[in-house]
Amino acid sequence: MSALYRNSIRFFRVIGTIFILQIMGGMLPAHAAEPGTTAPLLTVYKDANCGCCEKWLTHIRERGFSVNAHNINNLYEFKQSKGIPASMQSCHTAVSSQGYVFEGHIPAKFISRFLATPPKDAIGLTVPAMPVGSPGMEYQDKFMPYQVLLLKNDGSSQVYAQVNSLEESVQ
């Protein structure tokens, strides 16, 4: 084989590989983690019979999070052990690899924002109860405005974000 022929084959292999990688890149979810980065890991504790928790897990996964889900029977005690006051609890609790807690139906974008720049003296975020229209709690086109609250080490909380529309909730 001539050197020109070998170089031509190499050239077309490179072009073909680039083409295939571009096609495969288009198959990734719109909110997937950037190549070369590690998707944030959340370990989620929930009740085995909770359908809205499964919907929330789908929301989180579609936005680039890795998830390990565990069904447990003693959720209330678990939440208390993580410092989540009873008035701030919801149906599931996620714990980041850094130890932060994310209670309830929090939109993924707020978890991402929190993890990028964790506020001082914070243990995590919560969306108490189960507001209609929050991720996992979608029902028709109904929506109830809600707040994402910052949970602090001292047991207090403050508003972290206000969610006023269904579009804001599921982004």
Results as ranks from 00 to 15, higher is better:
Leu75His: 09
His70Ile: 09
Pro40Leu: 04
Ile23Leu: 13
Met24Ile: 07
Leu42His: 01
Ala33Tyr: 06
Glu62Thr: 12
Glu54Ile: 11
His59Cys: 04
Met24Cys: 07
Ala69Lys: 10
Asp47Phe: 10
Gly26His: 04
Leu41Ala: 10
Pro40Asp: 06
Ile84Gly: 03
Arg61Cys: 11
Gly99Lys: 02
Leu28Thr: 12
Cys91Arg: 03
Phe65Gln: 07
Arg13Tyr: 12
Ser97His: 11
Glu77Ser: 14
Leu21Asp: 01
Phe11Leu: 14
Cys91Asp: 03
Cys52Asp: 02
Lys46Trp: 04
Gln22Pro: 04
Thr58Tyr: 13
Ala33Asp: 08
Pro35Trp: 02
Cys52Leu: 05
Met24Phe: 11
Arg13Pro: 00
Ala32Met: 06
Cys53Arg: 08
Cys52Tyr: 04
Val44Ile: 12
Glu54Val: 12
Ser81Met: 09
Ala48Ser: 14
Phe65Arg: 08
Ser87Asp: 15
Val44Ser: 10
Gln98Asn: 13
Ala30Glu: 10
Asn71Pro: 02
Ala39Gly: 10
Ile20Ser: 04
Ser96Gly: 02
Cys53Asn: 08
Gly26Tyr: 05
Tyr45Val: 00
Gln80Ile: 12
Val67Tyr: 03
Ala86Ser: 14
Gln98Trp: 08
Lys46Asn: 05
Leu57Pro: 01
Gly64Thr: 07
Lys55Leu: 13
His70Pro: 04
Lys46Gln: 09
Arg13Gly: 11
Gly26Ser: 06
Leu21Pro: 00
Asn49Lys: 13
Met24Gly: 02
Met27Ala: 03
Ile84Gln: 04
His59Arg: 02
Gly83Val: 00
His59Ala: 05
Val14Gly: 04
His59Gln: 01
Ala69Pro: 00
His70Phe: 14
Phe19Tyr: 11
Gly26Pro: 00
Ala94Asn: 06
Ile72Tyr: 06
Phe65His: 09
Ser81Lys: 15
Ile15Gly: 00
Thr58Gln: 09
Ile15Asp: 02
Leu21Met: 03
Cys50Gly: 03
Ile15Glu: 03
Lys79His: 06
Val44Asp: 06
Val44Tyr: 06
Phe11Ala: 12
Asn74Ala: 10
Ala39Ser: 15
Ala86Leu: 15
Thr93Arg: 10
Ser87Phe: 11
Cys53Lys: 09
Ala39Val: 01
